[in-house]
Simulated scan of single mutants.
Amino acid sequence: MQSNIGLVLEEKATSIGNFMVGRLLPFKQKRAVGPFLFIDHMGPACLKEHQNVDVPPHPHIGISTLTYLFEGSIFHRDSLGNAIEIKPGEVNWMTAGKGVVHSERTPEYLRKDDKFLHGFQIWIGLPKELEQSDPSFHHINKEEIPTWEESGIAYKLIAGEIIGKKSPVPTHSPLYFLEISTKEAQKITIGDKLFGEVGMYVLSGSVKIEGNDYGSKQLLVAKNASLCEFDTNGETTLYLFGGDPFPEERFMFWNFVHSDKEVLEQAKKNWKEQNLEAFPKIPNDDQEFVPLPESKFKMKS
């Protein structure tokens, strides 16, 4: 029988500041899974009292960003005036649209203590008709995220709609970002509930698919979502994500994503010149910014 696994990609670790970030998407072999364009696995990392997360103001266009933490805390500020602490289990959902600026830092009350950081940062593309929409921001509390259990299998629907459940995260296209966890070996047949393209990331433990074992820090992309079934090998936590892909190609340069290369070029110019109409300053965090990287002038597609 032909395998349903189209790709198995190893997490690619890079160092950003004081902690390790594992890049899951994009890869040369796979630029997107459904509308999911970019996934970073942050940590797990232990930061000492003199180490803090400090990502200065930087811009985005053409996407929604999703931040989800397992451990630790990040303080989010943006050019819309939002200022909020992100805690484990909560969802920060920021839609950049035509342009937004945000920063991510260790909260003040933790800056002189040892602390942990572990979580996901995800970019999700916008439908073409919303790429130039006004930016917006939503923060969803942990208690609002749908969680349920069936036959010893625990589910959490972080974003999207699937299995008759719907997350309150205001997504803009058909998608799902689903956590599945087991405490003992379980067979999971879920393909009839999935749609579009689907990827699987094993956070901890391992799964068996078609007789092969796959462990943590591996991203699997299915050829056919409807054939998705697997066995967990005991205590395991994994994520299924995907949905309907867009009909148009998306181009990526640094933090900018769009279906029109001319819009990307204008965004680059606006940020380099610090055009405040296109990219306003962040209240209470306006003394620095991340410069446009000269080394990434090559357009990615």
Rank of each mutant, 00 (worst) to 15 (best):
L240Y: 12
E131R: 03
I122V: 15
M20Q: 09
A96M: 08
F120V: 07
Q132H: 05
K166H: 02
E149C: 13
M20E: 05
G215T: 09
V53T: 11
M94L: 09
A154D: 15
A96S: 11
D192Q: 11
S133R: 04
M252Q: 12
Q2V: 06
I61H: 03
S295K: 07
L292W: 15
P59A: 12
K296G: 06
G152M: 06
D134R: 09
N275E: 14
F116N: 15
T236W: 05
G205S: 00
Q266N: 14
Y155I: 08
R105Y: 13
K165G: 04
I61L: 02
T237Y: 01
L117F: 14
K193A: 08
F246E: 07
F38A: 06
K296F: 09
Y201C: 02
E229W: 06
R77T: 05
Q186M: 01
G242M: 10
N92A: 00
I124A: 09
H258P: 03
I86D: 01
E108N: 08
K28P: 00
E249Q: 07
F297Y: 00
S3P: 03
L47Q: 13
L219N: 02
E184Q: 04
S15E: 02
G243R: 05
S151L: 10
P280A: 10
I163G: 06
C228W: 11
Q51N: 08
S79D: 00
S204D: 07
L203V: 10
G152F: 03
N92F: 03
L157F: 14
T95A: 00
S295P: 01
E265C: 12
E90D: 15
D40E: 00
S151F: 09
P107W: 09
L126E: 03
L203E: 10
A96T: 04
N255E: 00
D54V: 12
T14M: 06
K217C: 01
M42V: 11
A267D: 02
I158G: 09
P26S: 09
N275I: 07
R105L: 12
H58A: 05
M94E: 01
L110W: 15
N284I: 11
D260A: 00
L194C: 13
D286K: 02
M42A: 13
L157P: 08
K115D: 15
K269R: 13
I282W: 00
P107E: 13
E277I: 14
P44E: 12
R105N: 14
E197G: 01
T14C: 02
G6T: 10
R23D: 02
Y201T: 06
K269D: 08
Q218L: 08
H118T: 14
L194H: 14
F177P: 04
Q121C: 14
Q2K: 11
I153W: 04
T182D: 06
L80D: 05
S173G: 02
K128P: 00
K298H: 04
I145K: 03
K156D: 11
E108D: 12
D213R: 08
V169C: 00
L240Q: 10
G164D: 03
P88R: 03
S206G: 10
H60I: 10
M42K: 06
K142Y: 08
P57N: 00
S216E: 12
G81P: 05
G164R: 09
W148G: 07
V91E: 15
K142M: 06
A278Y: 02
S151T: 13
